[in-house]
Design a protein around this nucleic acid. Sequence first.
RNA 1: AGGCGCGUAGCUCAGUUGGUUAGAGCGCUUCCUUGACACGGAAGAGGUCGUUGGUUCGAAUCCAAUCGUGCCUACCA
Length: 937
Amino acid sequence: MPHELPKTYDPTAIEDHWAEFWVRENLFAQPTPEPGNDADQSFVILLPPPNVTGRLHMGHMLNQTEMDILTRWRRMCGDRALWVPGTDHAGIATQMMVERQVVSEGSSRQKLGREKFVERVWEWKRHYGGAILDQMKRLGASVDWSREYFTMDERLSVAVREAFVKLHEQGLIYRGAYIVNWCPRCQTAISDLEVVYDEHKGHLWEIRYPVIGEDGKDSGEFLTVATTRPETMLGDTAVAIHPDDERYTHLHGKKLRLPLVDREIPIILDEWVSREFGTGAVKVTPAHDPNDFALGERHHLPSINVMDDTGHVNENGGKYAGLDRYVARKEIVQSLEERQLLAGIKDHVHNVGHCDRCKTVVEPRLSTQWFVKIQPLADKAIEAVEKGHIKFTPEMYAKTYFEWMRNIHDWCISRQLWWGHRIPAWHCANCHKVTVAREDPATCAHCGSEKITQETDVLDTWFSSGLLPVSVFGWPKISQETRADFDAFYPTSLLVTGFDILFFWVARMIMLGCWFGGDVPMADGSPRELKDAVPFREVYIHALVRDANREKMSKTKGNVIDPIEIVKQYGTDAVRFTLASMASPGTDIAFNVARTEGYRAFANKIWNAARFIFMNVDKAAEVGISVDRSVLGAMPTVGEDAPLEARWIVAELHATAARVNESLANYRYDDAANAIYQFFWGSFCDWYLEIVKLRLNFETQPVRGPEAALTTLVGVFEAALRLLSPFMPFLTEELWHAVYEGKPPERSIALTQYPQTSSYEGDSTRISFRHNYDSTVLEMRVIQSVITALRSHRKDLGVPEKERVPAVIFCAEEDGSLTAGYMVEEANRQLCDALARVDLTLKMERAPVGVKARVEVGFTVVIQYEAKIDVAAERERLTRDIAKYEKGLAAAERQLGNEGFLAKAPAPVVEGLKKQAAETKMLLDKARAALDALSGK
RNA sequence: AGGCGCGUAGCUCAGUUGGUUAGAGCGCUUCCUUGACACGGAAGAGGUCGUUGGUUCGAAUCCAAUCGUGCCUACCA
């Protein structure tokens, strides 16, 4: 069956087909292994769950490309590879989205009521929630779709409830009134990490608070405070000054009358107050500021909440009640001014916190919330990394991790939302105590009353996603029958994620994983130690994908690159390769489509190499020669008697495979990708294919030569496809199937063996890669440099491209015997003849002076061609060369004359430099002679 | 305010423990539509490695200072 491939590679024509094929065939499903399997053989990776409302962006694509490369690589290396996909229910984002939808229909969340609204969210999720995973399917991510999770799934919800109840039993969950970041628009508490600070030009209002005299009446004196949020004064319960502030010593023990509210408040002394800032007197509003709250605790001050859920002044605000916080601010400032209590307004630049989701200004607010007492969990999480049970790449992120973990605050886990895991706590109307339970209780655990109602708050989304590494493998329901997954797949091998997620997934998964993973005994029944309780053994952190100008992508700037669009234009493989080749650990990726264009060209190059190969396979078939496909699938080998190019390309393939395997083991996707690129294009196509063309003359040559050449050609190509496959799964899948002409030994290239160099050892009739690599490559390099010198020289002389010309290569004694040794071989001279289009003669002597020549280390070539020599240009070139050589030689001689260098530098370095100096001297002499000869004319 | 990075060719980036003449892709110049490929081939040009000082026989690499630049954390009213 002849191969029919179009001249240009068109990714769109094949990618959909294979993407569907991989999913349909369930190719990457990793069934639960039989008990007793070695967990060390597993490579397990959990997709950091994208937001269910999300669309795929470049960051995801980078993240997934890296995971897919590793997973495909480990799978092909023989590991039990498992990549588990899923999505996160994303409490606030999803609720917001559906709420907007409901409002656009003229209804509202409140009108629908909790139950109906939650049903609406589920409905939305069923219809649109799979978008990002569908995109993943199209991009060929080799995940196990049969294990797809959603954080609100029943089995994962069981884990959430278990974790909550357990932490509660352990005394690590408490409920209380504290200052939290409150979003008045989302009407929920949000985490510190969901608050983004923006610099904002505001004001510092200075307000005069009347001092109350001994008699209980205003003394006529004032204490001036400074504030950026004057409206919070309605809730002031003190004013604080520094105890050593001499300006205010006489006010110690006095009271003030809070303007507009007429409340008597004390002056308190606290060293926290900065004497330099503002007026040195700070109003204290414990219900609306975390620092003030702490002051209030220290000084036993009451907290007066003056704001409601929506950011409006509440009934405690007297006549300002009902006003929006900014309207209230304006009116309060005006009232103060009218009463001459405003001492001044100064411009003040400060940071204002905004809700990460909706950009509304966050209101620090006292409210009753549920918290996790985090220190015990953090301690374990710190220990796990300190002891090396979890390794970070790049290492510097461990520092960031420690920094954050060591300064951690208790975790506010309650959210005033409807979409999420509802907190399993019931309040009793009778005894007012709380019942926390695994199963919904009918009565209060304390007094037996039936008048109990479930807590309305839900849990922070991270509470559930942080549990994923344990929960996706069955925790907490680990029994003798159900534990096979956990035994085989926990701890997972690796988490791949962006640095911006360090404190979300990474930190939380480590804390919760170490805490609950340890509950599950090992397969042999022994207790699980911390090193095996960790959720993953390694963390690889990648950087940000920026635009071509290194700008951060953002919707407002309009510079967002949609990966799907780029994929449509250039093909998935090209985009993947772009990301991989730039994914150097710790460096942001400036995504430039010019580069993707280059890798599309690379794909096209391989495609055309395949066309060439298939063309020859077909030609061979016509004369009855067929390729022995039974030798494919392993690492190609050749005998010592094989022609140079065959020995060389096989040696290069082995070297490349070694480098790629090593690079991937160190997360050097860039090194790995570049090594393959260099091999495929620079070695295989540029040199090997050009040479092998000479061998594939089926009509005129004896059969054995072309047949052997064809076998090596196909063998190396097939192995190289496997090497490239994790990076370019689509192209390689297509061509690999074509190599086997529809009768492949596996369903997919992804299930074949990854090229390894170790398989090359042990067979003495074959050249050993390690043993012969150097000599083969050296020989080839010499041939290449001769060919390049000839080509270059042709250009200098202006020889027409197609013209075949006589040439002489001079290898004098002083040049050493290396080149001469190789050029004595007729086969090698023939290679030079063919690739440089010359008729080459070897002369073991010095090149004649005064002849236009090309001088190289080890040899000189002269092409016999009548050419007009541009004397001026030639002189300029020689002069430039001489200067370069002189400089190099002087530097080398200076160092060689340095006794310290000779005494201390290692011998190979000294030897190398000596050799280099000699070579440079030779080149310099010849260049000088040539210049003299030129001038003599 | 603290912490962490980065500064190498026109652009985007490699350069692992200091060691021979600092690499790649894209872009650029010249020539070539030769039977795999013009998304191609061939040959080239292009860098005092931000600056200054130090350690060393030897520094892009280590140290210090300095300039520039980016990010993270905190959030003094």
